[in-house]
């Protein structure tokens, strides 16, 4: 039983490491600030998720039986989109990327503000 868990631990560790590596590679390779934002979402979701799963499996293999790692994933999943949202708002605001098309409803995007009137 513990051998199976150890093999699973190793497999999940490798999966997590691969996705973290691909995320870091993407951060270097991609050329546009908005494109670059996509790379850390991989390291932040499946990368961390697999590494945390490895930690839980390891604790069960050694008899520690701990699950509080789940909270790391839960809190990360709640907070990571907010920081990504802020980074993209900064990108739009500083015109580091292509200006987005106008919204299908309402007058403008929250970051850009009214295009013709005085910016407030």
């Amino acid at each position: 039983m513990s051998t199976v868990l150890e093999i699973l631990t190793a497999v999940t560790l490798i999966i997590g490491a691969i996705f973290t590596l691909v995320g870091s590679y993407g951060l270097l390779k991609l050329d546009d600030p908005m494109k670059r934002l996509h790379a850390p979402t991989k390291a932040g979701t499946l990368g961390v998720g697999a590494l945390i799963t490895a930690s839980i499996l390891h604790s069960f293999a050694t008899g520690g039986n701990s699950v509080h790692e789940v909270l790391i994933v839960a809190f990360l999943f709640v907070t990571a989109p907010i920081s990504a949202h802020f980074i993209s708002k900064v990108n739009i605001h500083r015109k580091r990327c292509e200006t987005p098309p106008p919204p299908p409803e309402d007058t403008s995007w929250a970051t850009l503000g009214p295009s013709d009137g005085p910016a407030s």
Binding site: M34, F77, P81
Partner: peptide, 15 residues
């Protein structure tokens, strides 16, 4: 949308 790789939610319209 942000957690699913490949798409990032970037902004909300003013309303």
């Amino acid at each position: 949308i942000t957690l699913t790789p490949g798409t990032v939610s970037a902004d909300l319209s003013d309303e």
